[in-house]
């Protein structure tokens, strides 16, 4: 069954999602990778306001290719998430409720997700052309000097995602593999 979910997330929705759920996400998400996360956490350490509303925010770990004229965005698939593990707990504790990426997360991120009721979505790595079709608009928010790594506000429609880790700490990377191996015998 596929669940239609709107971003930013409300806490009840975030907590209701379960590892393995297929999700079509619509609404507003913000892009940030390594360099932007570092700057956001530096702001947070100073107690300064963040450049976008973090309450319920969904952050997409993506550095898109440049948009061709007339297109909102270029290719836009997920980058590997563990590089954001050093920064994610800080943003989760400030109110971030969703992360979109691919690949494993560290125990400190999963603990912060359980503490705050957040969810980690996987998008298909290497399918950036397909995922870009779900992006209806992209607008620069800050850090233009970072190029592809700048923070952008994306309006997305029916972005196909899978809940990899839910707010209880269930992890599809462990359960999906185990289920496959069990049926294979």
């Amino acid at each position: 069954m596929t669940k239609n979910v709107t971003a930013p997330l409300d806490p009840e929705t975030a907590r209701s999602l379960r590892s393995g759920d297929s999700v079509l996400l619509s609404g507003t998400v913000y892009t940030a990778r390594d360099a932007a996360h570092r700057r956001l956490c530096e702001l947070a350490a100073k107690g300064a306001p963040l450049p976008f509303p973090i309450e319920g925010a969904v952050i997409y770990y993506v550095g898109p290719t440049p948009a061709r004229p007339g297109q909102p965005i270029g290719s836009a698939g997920p980058t590997t998430s563990y590089r954001m593990d050093a920064y994610a707990p800080t943003l989760l504790r400030l109110g971030e409720l969703g992360m979109i990426g691919k690949g494993k997360r560290g125990p400190e991120v999963i603990q912060a997700m359980k503490d705050t009721g957040a969810v980690y979505f996987g998008a298909i790595g290497g399918a950036g052309a397909l995922l870009a079709r779900c992006v209806k608009s992209a607008e620069l928010v800050c850090y233009e000097d970072l190029g592809a790594e700048a923070v952008r506000r994306l309006e997305v429609e029916n972005l196909p995602l899978t809940v990899v880790i839910d707010s209880l700490g269930n992890n599809l990377y462990e359960t999906g593999r185990a289920a496959y191996l069990a049926q294979r015998g």
């Binding site: 550095g63 270029g74 290719s75 698939g77 290497g126 397909l130 999906g176």
Partner: peptide, 28 residues
């Protein structure tokens, strides 16, 4: 032979068939 895996491979195949000069992956 695993249905969820087939679904992902279908999306990957669909992605690879997109024409018009869009990079296959954003990490060029």
């Amino acid at each position: 032979d695993w249905p969820p895996a087939r679904e992902i491979l279908d999306r990957i195949i669909e992605n690879g068939a997109i024409e018009g000069g869009v990079p296959i992956c954003q990490d060029t």
